[in-house]
Amino acid sequence: MAIDLFSWYIGTVVVLYSIGLYCLASKRNLVKMVIAIEILLAAANLNFIVMSYFMRTGYVHTLAHAIVIISMAIGACVAAIALSLVMNAYRHYKTLDTRKMSRLRW
């Protein structure tokens, strides 16, 4: 049964990661893109836990916990900067549409 659970977990990670990437590639709204980044990060973090679980079933190593917590903190920093940039971008462009934000090109 444990193996089954493992594949479910992995499946979740893959689905989450794909959702994040799809969102980044298709959504125009910057806030949605920030959320997509968070989803990607969540997927990666989840994978840590899953992998730890994979090594010894039914038990998650503290190292994985520590890493996930630190990486969540880092993710929060990135999100904070991303949101502040989104705000600034909104101030300059009066929109959150990425396609309008292409004055830098070529």
Binding site: Y17, G20, I37, A44, N47, F48, V50, M51, S52
Partner: peptide, 12 residues
């Protein structure tokens, strides 16, 4: 996040 994913796999 790609790096983190790779890391987690290596860890696993």
């Amino acid at each position: 996040t790609a790096v983190l994913l790779a890391m987690s796999m290596l860890y696993g």
